[in-house]
Design a protein around this nucleic acid. Structure first.
Lengths: 360, 360
DNA sequence: AGCAAAATTTGAATCGATCCAACAAAGATG
DNA sequence: CATCTTTGTTGGATCGATTCAAATTTTGCT
């Protein structure tokens, strides 16, 4: 059931086999990294010595120090590591990042940590050439931490207002406008918004003043877009309930409860993420409200799952994989420039949106 | 739209700030790694110098070489990197691995590559303390490659017959027995098997002799389990169609076509993965066959998605996250022993299995 | 003040490779 | 035969930190 492998002898180094083969360490090194420049006879001798001594090949640790390049990019977040494998948005993004990394043979190192202190340490000590930052919440802390590392990095998703940091994201205002316009055009006039966080550690209903002072620019922009489009249809945006969630099941459900507790329930829900939109559909259906018969729901993101839920979700599709790919390329081909890219979004109409009920 | 960051001056090293602060490297090093042992006055002076010179903190590259420990574990596969974010089984496994890594603050490095050659290089040069190997296909190549690296590693999932390599998996024979027994007990007598690959680069229907010589032990064991349980019910296992797929949509559909092309279609399908089982349910439903009314389907793995599909999938649940956790712990707490663990599985009865149709 | 014990600081050694200028040997050319 | 190439090899310097035994300074106590 258990047997010992290898004695705990000090591992053989390049220098050891160089000595054994009677060549200099320079030559020994060449045998492995540029075999073509060393004479065949010598090459064979060194390889034989390596084989005989059980040399595992040049240790990447040593090479790294000399070369300076790790050939891996770090992807960091304040969420636990499992976020990368569970959240649909993160997964789609990672797929894009993976693609770019696969193409150049670069590796991916996942960086995260339960607590604040460990996160700092992990970012400090990650062996990477640069970082891609998932700035869901606590983006600014993450950016600060990473800035100290003095490596190239790029902020993702909701972006970051600071013009000195590279960022890739979408035009949130335009996307939100598209979403609201679509619903208003269908005839809806009573809306509710399921919002992403406005600032750290908050959740609950949001007042108009709070909206104006939103800290997270992505959230603010989406709201601005919604309101802009709706006012054009004569909707009084000040009267629209905005409920801030943490983009998870519990807080979204709480938001829905609050929104539908009032006397005049909305006929359309603007959700700032597909995740919330899908939770909303489930919640509404379970409550006996038809989607889109009684209430229309529109999401934001365009995660693959949105096409599969029942009814399929109308949403604003971001080019998620493309964002990931570009982020990776930004790090891989880093040139010292601050690069800020704003990609376009697209309205994808599926079955979760339709005209409001006649009775309303 | 683009501005230059930092001149390309050589980055400051610990030695630089040591000189600037008028202390030795040793002391400067201590300021960062064991601040408590250096006198406050000195500590402040060094920190001030670091601040003034824009020192990013001890470079992990240097530390690494000295310490020897990377504090990260590599997860390798022959599939493209995106496999980790797309395949449900891989994702569930990664969640378990993540958990263990989060707990100890270890990082995760994803290792993969499009072609064979690059994979070898990536495994050779990955900065990790050990590897977890996803041996879906080409497990033996992966194991050989990794063995050369002379780092601890553990093989996952379908395991590996070689007793000299650490492996963690489930009792495939028992699980398969459970699955077949469940269906036979419900009254089914006509079966078909959707099988995982038997060996590299194969796909299609499988003859009984081929079954006996299956190379991948996981596949073989599941088949053995199925047949064992069925023979106990008097089923002629030699007559059961076994179709080998690549666990993807295309080959699974092809398998279903082949299976249902014959005159006497099966009333129950034994799928060796939930992935295939879910594809089968979709295929059957689209064909107008009721599940489980006309055909029962049982999967294998117990991925979270299996509970969500329609109808919810009856399956053999592996403790996927637990396997991941143990694999990570095996590397993190490596003690030089070969560890082979076989975990138990559990029959989870949901709605995709029921008695065979009366007319059959 | 005198001295031992405790607390700090020093500087050389080390981790494991790669790089490169200098050198040596063999071959080509006049 | 002397000189120039070409090809292959050498060994010191370097990457950026950590470690530890020895040296030095402080502190505690009589």
């Amino acid at each position: 059931m258990a047997s010992s492998t290898e004695g705990n002898t000090r591992p053989v180094r390049l220098a050891d086999i160089a000595k054994a083969a009677g060549v200099s360490h320079g030559t020994a090194s060449n045998v492995f990294s540029r075999p073509e420049i060393v004479r065949e006879e010598v090459r064979e001798r060194v390889k034989a010595a390596a084989e005989a001594m059980g040399y595992a090949g040049p240790d990447p640790k040593g090479r790294l120090l000399r070369a300076g390049k790790v050939n891996a990019i770090g992807v960091a977040t304040t969420e636990p590591l499992s976020y990368f494998f569970e959240d649909p948005f993160a997964r789609a993004m990672m797929a894009g990042i993976s693609e770019a990394c696969d193409a150049t043979g670069a590796g991916i190192a996942l960086v995260s940590a339960g607590n604040q202190e460990k996160l700092a340490w992990n970012i400090q000590s990650a062996l990477v050439d640069g970082f891609i930052l998932f700035c869901i919440e606590g983006g600014s802390r993450l950016v600060e931490l990473t800035r100290e590392r003095k490596l190239p990095f790029v902020a993702l998703e909701l972006g970051f207002d600071d013009d000195t940091v590279s960022a890739i994201g979408v035009d949130n205002v335009a996307g939100a406008r598209l979403a609201a316009h679509h619903l208003a055009e269908l005839g809806h006039r009573r809306f509710a918004v399921l919002s992403l966080p406005f600032a750290d550690d908050r959740t609950g209903p949001v007042s108009p003043e709070q909206v104006r002072t939103a800290v997270y620019p992505g959230t603010r922009d989406r709201l601005v877009g919604y309101f802009e489009a709706l006012s054009r249809f004569g909707v009084d945006t000040a009267g629209i309930p905005v409920y801030e969630t943490e983009n998870d099941e519990a807080s979204t459900r709480a938001g829905l409860e609050a929104i539908f507790a009032g006397g005049e329930p909305p006929t359309a829900i603007l959700a700032m993420s597909d995740r919330m939109a899908m939770i909303a559909i489930e919640w509404l259906t379970a409550r006996g409200l038809a989607v889109p018969g009684d209430v229309s729901v529109i999401g934001f993101d365009g995660v693959p799952e949105a096409a599969l839920c029942d009814p399929p979700l109308t949403t604003i599709a971001q080019p998620i994989a493309e964002i990931g790919r570009r982020a990776a390329r930004t790090i891989l081909d880093f040139d010292g420039m601050v690069r800020r890219e704003r990609l376009g979004v697209e309205l994808v109409v599926r079955a979760s949106s339709g005209p409001p009920p006649k009775t309303a």
